[in-house]
């Protein structure tokens, strides 16, 4: 797993361990006409059984799947000094919202995408900041390249774990691809109210 972290527009030493469960692939038949949360590639994601079997590594700071945390909360809180949570991009925002979890208890919340083209991450970031009022570090995980950074930053993300094998020095430049934006997001104001238009 990559260890190149960009945090608050700087490349930093990453002392968080990102736990990504590896699971067996099962074939799933999709029901026609039924709306379910679709993953980009159709692979499985871990069921409770899988999550219960995971051996928790002996480290101090760990980023865990939200569902794993919910299942084994006591054990996890006892074991680690600091816990961050992450969601798969197909996990439902409404579900997260209804958990009534105090997200600000956690110093990091991450969203993981398997594929670059998975744009759900942007809306999830926006909603977690805007609707759930998350104040701490929001981290992009997975297939994260230079070319998403400008948009992720504007969608509320404050840190980026750059994909294995890609240069973080190169990627960080993506944050300044554009000096202006038209529309507002989060607590920005749109270009037309910035009075830059003469």
């Amino acid at each position: 797993m990559s260890n190149q972290l960009i945090l608050n527009k700087k490349i930093v030493n990453n002392d968080w361990v990102f736990l990504l469960p590896v699971i067996e692939q099962k074939e799933v038949k999709k029901q026609a006409g039924k709306v379910v949360m679709f993953k980009v590639t159709g692979e499985n994601f871990p069921e409770d059984d899988d999550l219960n079997k995971i051996k928790l590594p002996d480290v101090s700071k760990i980023l865990l799947p939200l569902k794993l945390y919910l299942l084994r909360k006591d054990e996890i809180e006892k074991k680690y000094s600091e816990v961050g949570l992450w969601l798969y991009s197909h996990e439902d925002f409404q579900w997260l919202s209804n958990l009534n979890l105090d997200l600000n208890k956690f110093s990091v919340i991450g969203i993981y995408i398997e594929k670059f083209a998975d744009g759900r991450i942007y809306s999830l970031g926006n909603l977690i900041r805007r609707k759930l009022k998350f104040k701490n570090d929001l981290r992009a995980l997975g297939d994260i390249l230079k070319d998403q950074l400008f948009f992720l930053d504007r969608s509320g993300f404050s840190s980026f774990l750059i994909k294995e094998g890609r240069s973080a020095e190169e990627a960080i430049k993506g944050l300044s691809d554009f000096s202006h934006s038209y529309q507002a997001t989060l607590d920005e104001i749109p270009s037309w109210r910035k009075n830059l238009n003469g």
Binding site: G119, Y122, Q148, F150, F151, D153, R154, Y182, Q183
Partner: peptide, 14 residues
């Protein structure tokens, strides 16, 4: 046009 240009949330829609 301006609002939709590089709208960060909608850079990669389905």
């Amino acid at each position: 046009r301006q609002w939709s240009t590089f709208h960060p949330e909608f850079a990669l829609l389905p």
